[in-house]
Amino acid sequence: MAVAAEVLEAPGMPSSRAARVRRFIVRNPTLVAGLACLMLLAASAIGAPLLTARDPQQMRPMARLSPPSADQPFGADHFGRDVFARTLYGGRISLRVGITVALISLLIGAAIGLTSGFYRALDTVVMRVVDGLMAIPSVLLALALMALVKASVETVIAALVVPEVPRVIRVVRASVLSLREHTMVEGARAIGAGTPRILIRYILPALVAPLIVQGTHVCASAILVESYLSFLGAGTPPHIPSWGNVMAEGRAYVQIGVWILLFPGLFLMLTVLSINLLGDGLRDRLKV
C-alpha cells in the first residue's frame, strides 16, 4: 500500500529518558499501539498453560455447547472442548503460521528478487512465472495446493508461501532495479567490486526497511488466509487448533453457540489489526 508518509520526524534534543519515550509514543502512536497489542496477544498465546488449566483437545460430552461462564469464560464447543483454551492455544498456531510464512516468503523472495534484478537473462523468465503466479488469486492457489498434500501446519505454511513469494519478488526487484543505477553502486563497480559483493554490501541493507514493512503485510495476510482455508475445509488439521479451524468448526453453530465463532474471531481480528498498525507505523517511521 503506497500511502505517503505523513508523520514528519523533527530531530529534537533529548531531555530525559522518560521524555524521550513519551515523545516516541506521541510521534508514533500507531506503531506503539500495534506493538503493545501484539505483544499482549503473543504473551497470551505463549503463556496459554499459565492462563488455563484445560487441555484444548479434551472432549467433555456433558459440557457440549454450554455458554460462557466463570468456569469457562468463552464457553464450550460442540464436543465440549473449552473455547478459551482453544483460543489461547490456537493463537500459538496462527501466530506461528503468520510469522513463519512472512520469514520464509521474505527470504525466498529476496533471494530470487536480488538475483533476477541483477541478471537480465534470468529476469525475463522469473518475471513471466511471477506474473503467471500472481494472476492466480492467492486463496484459490493456496486452496488448490492444500488439495495436493496431507494437511499439517507445515503444508499450510508452504501453501501460503507460494502465492506470497511473487509479491515479495516484485517489491525487491523494483528496488534493485532503481538501486542498480544508483551512484553508490556505480562507484562500487568502478572500484572493482563483484556482483555478489555489491548485492550483499550495498543493495541488501537498503532493502531491509521495505522488506520489514512488506513482512508485516505478509504476516497479516497469512493469518487471514489460513482462516479462509480452514473455513473452506482445507486449512490446518482440525486436531491442531488454530483460530481459523476453531472458527471453522464453530461456524455451523452460529445460532446455538455463537461464542465458538465470536471469540477466536475477535482474537484473530485484534492480532491482524495490530500487525497492520505496526506495519503502518513502521512504514511511517522508516519512511519507506
Partner: peptide
C-alpha cells in the same frame, strides 16, 4: 483505524455476525 480493521477481519466471521 476503522479502515485498517476492515481488512483485518475474516470475511466469513463478519458475514456470520451480520447474518446473526
Amino acid at each position: 483505524v476503522f479502515a485498517v480493521s476492515g481488512f483485518s477481519m475474516p470475511v466469513f466471521w463478519l458475514g456470520f455476525l451480520l447474518v446473526w
